[in-house]
Amino acid sequence: MKCYIDRVTTEHDVVTDIKLLIPDAGLRRRMSRVIKSAVTTAVECVGGIENIGSYDAIITATGWGCLTDSERFLRNIIVDKEQLLNPTPFIQSTFNTVGGQIALLNHNHCYNVTYVNRSHSFEDALLDAMMRIADGESENILVGAFDEQTPSQHRIMERMGIFRNINDGEGAVFAQIRAHRSAESIAQVTAIDFPAHSLSKQECLEKFATSENVVLMYNTYTLHGLYPTVSARCFAEATRLIQNGTKEVIVYNEYFGATPTVLRIQCVG
């Protein structure tokens, strides 16, 4: 299985005015911070709302979903004693809100699924995309990941002792994934794996490297802080390395007590 990557966008790459990315002012106002961040990243990645229609699958990933909305609704239930609750945070707390909103912006009726599998969420979404491509079900897929940090989540994880050696983090990453190489293709994913046990750096290279000319990104998530889909940020960094001339990158991530994930990303040349 393999796929081509035509573009990778993180929330830091969004340069277009949000009013163009999400034209409906009411919709923008209702959206929580993470939804706004993820949807604008997605629309920036595809180059504008009008291009959403050219995708035949939208696959999103999130470990925690829309935490602010979940917290707000939970708080309202307790404080308002289950009376006269505003449904908006409940609606938006749903894990597939971002995927649904992207489809809604351009009335795209395609396959639209959300993986919520802690530190594997992004890789699971990418695997689904690669299986769809291998099955001939999709040509152009939008794959994305997002998570937000909130004061409560930070406090709870702090109490669990998780931030002793690492910072908290958050982020949104979206990628254009293609079945076939195009003029815009910047890299290709040539391996995706979910080893049952930890691998050493040496084992990663022995098992996945195809040449001497390889960069191993071994648990580089630590550079970006800890959150469930931080591995998507590593994926974005890896494609950037390829764009800058590296031939092959192995991305290995293992965090949150889960088994590791491995991606091999190569140049298209």
């Binding site: 979903g65 749903t94 894990f95 597939n96 995927g99 639209n112 699924v113 959300t114 993986y115 919520v116 599998n117 802690r118 594997h120 699971d124 689904d128 299986m131 769809r132 099955d135």
Partner: peptide, 20 residues
């Protein structure tokens, strides 16, 4: 193993992913 959450269609989507 993986987890899917798409509100009230979630389990049907799990069946689809499993088949793949």
């Amino acid at each position: 193993r993986t987890t899917i959450s798409t509100a009230c269609s979630s389990a049907a989507n799990a069946v689809i992913t499993g088949a793949k």
